[in-house]
């Protein structure tokens, strides 16, 4: 399997800021993920939603990076959401108990609806 370098786009929206992730999330993604999160923070104090729809592979170092984002989000009392995860990674997020702190939705529409009602 060829690794796909992570790329990230940030969309500032009225309800939440969406970070579209493309590629694999591993230890090599630290800089990209951190920079994207900083750009999302700069959009304002809205919830940040991570879009995993175009992410095929997350290894445990990648999970550790997401834990790091959760720590940053919690320090600033900001909600962090996720959507577009495959069933496999929904299960991994559940087992690693990231779901205790991060709500997961099947798609963007439901994630934004939740952010709006929060």
């Amino acid at each position: 399997m060829t690794a796909r370098h992570l790329e990230a786009d940030v969309r500032c929206g009225p309800i939440a800021t969406v970070v579209d992730l493309h590629g694999d999330i591993s230890s090599a993604s630290d800089e990209t993920l951190g920079a994207a999160y900083a750009r999302a923070e700069a959009c304002g104090p809205r919830p940040i939603a991570l879009n995993f729809h175009d992410v095929d592979y997350i290894n445990s170092s990648g999970i550790a990076l997401i834990v790091g984002l959760l720590v940053r989000a919690r320090k600033s009392n900001r909600a962090l959401l996720a959507f577009g995860l495959s069933d496999h990674y929904v299960e991994i997020f559940r087992i690693t108990r990231l779901t205790d702190f991060m709500s997961i939705f099947p798609d963007e529409e439901l994630a934004l609806a939740s952010a709006k009602s929060a």
């Binding site: 834990v67 959760l70 087992i95 690693t96 108990r97 990231l98 205790d100 702190f101």
Partner: peptide, 9 residues
């Protein structure tokens, strides 16, 4: 029966 715990817990 012990539950596994992540670094957030």
């Amino acid at each position: 029966g012990r539950r596994i715990v992540g670094p957030l817990q």
